[in-house]
């Protein structure tokens, strides 16, 4: 296998006449943290969902461990974990019940589910784990969501805006968890609106209007474009794409 655990080739997604993702190419290296930036509606979530098999590809190809993502969808699903925006736990179920439910649909045995329920007790207070997840503090809900996402011990982890709306302190704690996962050899893709966080990533991507605008190591990109902060880099990328777009449509 190449060092690229995921290869995205000419990936396109159309919803009717709308092109959400427009022939993008990039790779994800094994064991890296890849930061994924772009405005709302840029195509981030659509891209993630095509990679992890939740959305069908319109054209192009995705290779995961050199296997075609649509042909080997079932096998590949086993090695990927996904934490969606606003971490979708069932609000009326407790954390324990959520683990049982998601463990069940991921094909974990009863025994393993029991073990996992024991395991989380070491991280979070049992009384809280028994409450409906709608009633627990968002910071803890986020922890539970990540735990659920890791139930099957996936090699590749997709975190879609895991830190939006959380406390500055909790947001930082979460990055320690992400780094911990990297140390365990996991490959991680993280999308975020908190631009400072991209500096923790090994490499970053910026997409807008379905087009890939920048790809590379954060430090190298800052140097290349002569910018002092990711904020400025982001602005530059988005505004130049907007300008091009308005010239084309004119």
């Amino acid at each position: 296998m190449t060092e690229n655990i995921i290869q995205v080739k000419n990936l396109t997604k159309q919803f009717g006449h709308f092109t959400a993702v427009n022939g993008i190419n990039f790779n994800i290296k094994k064991g890296e943290i890849l930061g994924f930036l772009g405005p709302n509606g840029a195509g981030k979530t659509t891209t993630i969902k095509m990679i992890n098999g939740l959305l069908k590809i319109s054209s192009g190809q995705i290779l995961i461990k050199d296997m075609d993502s649509e042909k080997y969808r079932k096998q590949l699903k086993q090695i990927m974990g996904y934490m969606s925006q606003k971490f979708s736990l069932y609000p009326l179920l407790s954390s324990f019940e959520n683990i049982e439910f998601f463990g069940g649909i991921s094909g974990l045995s009863r025994k393993v589910i029991k073990e996992k329920q024991e395991e989380i007790k070491a991280l979070i207070d049992t009384a809280i784990l028994m409450q409906k997840t709608s009633d627990i503090p968002p910071g803890i809900r986020q922890k539970v969501s990540l735990f659920v996402c890791l139930l099957t011990d996936p090699e590749i982890i997709f975190l879609d805006e895991p830190t939006s709306g959380v406390d500055p302190e909790v947001r930082r704690d979460f990055w320690f968890e992400i780094y911990h996962l990297k140390k365990m050899g996991k490959t991680i893709l993280v999308s975020t609106h908190n631009l400072d966080e991209v500096e923790y990533a090994d490499r970053m991507l910026i997409i807008h209007r379905g087009n890939l605008l920048m790809e590379g190591e954060p430090d190298r990109l800052l140097k290349e474009y002569g910018k002092n902060s990711i904020d400025d880099l982001f602005k530059e990328a988005i505004l130049s794409e907007d300008k091009q777009h308005s010239e084309v449509t004119r």
């Binding site: 772009g38 405005p39 709302n40 939006s164 709306g165 609106h193 982001f234 988005i238």
Partner: peptide
């Protein structure tokens, strides 16, 4: 502005 991108 929650969930709205940094430029907007």
């Amino acid at each position: 502005t929650t969930g709205v991108d940094p430029l907007s």
